[in-house]
Design a protein around this nucleic acid. Sequence first.
RNA 1: CGCGGAGUUGAGGAGUGGUCCCUCGGGAGGCUCAUAACCUCCAUACGUUGGUUCGAAUCCAACCUCCGCAACCA
Length: 481
Amino acid sequence: MSEKKFYITTTLPYVNAKAHMGHAMEFVRADIIARFKEWLGYSVFFNTGTDEHGLKIYRKALEQGKDPQQYVDEVSKLFKDLTQKLGMKSDLNFVRTTDEKHMRAAQEFWRRCEKNGDIYKKNYKILYCVGCELEKTHSDLVEGRCPEHFDRELEEIEEENYFFRFSKYTQNLLEIYKKNPNFVRPDFRLKEISSFVERELEDFSISRLREKQPWGIPVPGDEDHTMYVWFDALVNYVSVIGWPENMDVFDNWWPVTQYAGKDNLRQQSAMWQAMLLSAGLSPSRQIIINGFVISDGQKMSKSIGNVIDPLVLIEEYGLDALRYYIAREIHPFEDSDMTEDKFKNCYNANLANSLGNTLSRVIKMYSSYEVESRDFPSLQEIQKDREVEENFISALNEFNIQKATDYIWKRIANMERFIQDQQPFKTIKTSPAKAKEDVAYLMQELWVVSQLLQPIMPNSAILIEKALRTGLLDSPLFLRK
RNA sequence: CGCGGAGUUGAGGAGUGGUCCCUCGGGAGGCUCAUAACCUCCAUACGUUGGUUCGAAUCCAACCUCCGCAACCA
């Protein structure tokens, strides 16, 4: 009954393009935290999936001459494959916003908000560029004009939309932020969102005319409108754990810990929280905001040619190399620059040379010196160690995966220094008992490393464990590239 | 002066008053158990100008530079 529970989700990627490094980063980080909680003895519900409605997807499908359903089936499958290739927990829940169950929940969510008086109809002005034959938003514009058709005036079209009474929740949101200073991590993001909310919220539109945007969930009770994707997609965080029909399951897991990119700060930590309040639900537990992965100081883009495909890296260097890089070499909260060269350097220096080579050295000495095997410490004992607690567990509790991983490599560096200082490879000839004692210590140390690696690089953790148990290493852990 | 963030050695990061720390890269030694791996030592830095202080990367002021956000963009 007092079982510890943890529910974590990523943001659902919008499937109008294939997966990039940013998706891989968010997925792997959420997976590391999910595994870490499990490692601590929690039972974990881990959710991800794909966001599949909306105008952009509708257009994309038509562009490719496909039925929208066929298009989203294909792209969603790519993302689902990605979760496997990234080695995410096999009991991961993968939701699609086109799932029947989700669509029903989204409609019910709408009804609850409506019942609470938070949904109303109002005229909505849209800027339309006749040149592109597209709606334009302010961020699309340059000096108030369409950059593609600069000589043309934009047309203003009015249409009736449903709106959500966001403004009503200003005070509630500010209270949430104030009451829980860790609600959004890192802290400067909480500051950012709370100053945004303080500046007076405007209600936002949550529907589109069905005739213009047929690819979406119908607004309950009004067939002429489609729910705007945001409203639809966010509801997945509650629908996947049984809301609304299975409240026992829901209560068991809620509230959620969310990972999101910095471009999602507002949607996740303000809009979605207001929606939850409106539907009579409690807010999320915590929202972790990632930075972006950039390359050579620029946003990755096809035209610049600096796009890094996570799948290519996995093929070339192996899954755990990518997980390592995401864990240790990408800043936990700020933007990070990434290039393939840098990836290769880090791989050689820290995986081949440091971790892989140390394992080879220790195993070689162990097997040639006839060292007696000893019992390895249990996970519980390792977790109770004060140093582990302070440097590893506390860092992960704060989602600072980088700091936690640094600690593991600090221990590896200590081992390398120890070998050089004690020189068991020399003392084996002069005082073998001492040498064996030293090697036994190194085996224990490596065991601790393997246990700490479990959430971060699960496959390598298993390989190291196996080598330590059998005293044999069939092949190098990470080959130099 | 819209709001917010940031400027630390060649690169990337840590560091909220007391000789600037870590990783990669560079230089010089050493070791041989190991995947031309490993260890030790060395070099180079706190955007600028002032101020507070016995003492500042850290507090204050001004300036310079860069980057997000400015709402429906998923």
